[in-house]
Nucleic acid binder design. Structure first.
Lengths: 114, 114
DNA sequence: CTAATATGCAATTACTAAGTTGCGTATTAT
DNA sequence: ATAATACGCAACTTAGTAATTGCATATTAG
């Protein structure tokens, strides 16, 4: 059977945690904005949002914990940039699940044609 | 900018909701089991689990709400089967994000080489 | 028919997450 | 130096989620 990764320290892919981080409209919007390439400060990311800076900050920390974004201090502001690795990680996982499903269908088809 | 889908009724892909449904170890395990092809009853899915049947039922309902599984009643048992469409949906979305990121890097590279 | 199996519904508990507010501190601009 | 900007920390409220328990109902097996 397809087995979920045991969850682990940094670098080890915790698929569920990554999905959970993406499972929020606000965070999904942040990822979309940051994946455009440019790093943004927290204030910048809060602009045009209906929620407070603190709320945005919390969401960014969630994204950072699973590695979807990285942050660096630049003077008085803290810049966030997108990091693609966790996303590739879950894409591979979803491909595995899809592949398992396709194989199952193929076997069923072969069985029925026999 | 990459814009999240406005969230909508059935069929309309609510990416965040699908990610949220996948963002739980238990549900991820259920999806993995069901993607092997065979439909399972709730009791069957509860077997070998540390949580109760009711808990499993609730997780299945969450998965069903975003369309990742479908259920049908068969006599006294209710069978759940995997449905790949929402998964394909989010895979496409992740590809879009990845592509946006890659394009951004390409532009940066081109700019630096100029 | 009766017992065992499989499920559904409802109430409850404990925990987590989203969001806010207030306040303090560091950094930059005038 | 002072004011404005950008941020971090902590307490708190509210709402949602995971999971349990108890009980009722439908279905199948003996």
């Amino acid at each position: 059977m397809l087995q979920a990764h045991p969850s682990g320290g940094a670098g080890q892919p915790n698929h569920a945690a990554i999905f959970a981080a993406l499972g929020d409209e606000t965070r999904l919007a942040l990822v979309a904005k940051l994946s455009a390439g440019q790093p943004y400060s927290i204030s910048r990311l809060t602009e045009g949002s209906h929620i407070t800076r603190q709320a945005v900050t919390k969401h960014l920390r969630v994204l950072e914990e699973v590695g979807l974004v990285r942050s660096m201090r630049a003077g008085r502001e803290s810049l966030f940039e997108f990091n693609p690795e966790p996303m590739e990680e879950v894409k591979e996982y979803l491909d595995l699940v899809s592949k398992q499903w396709d194989n199952a269908l193929s076997r069923l088809k072969a069985f029925l044609e026999d």
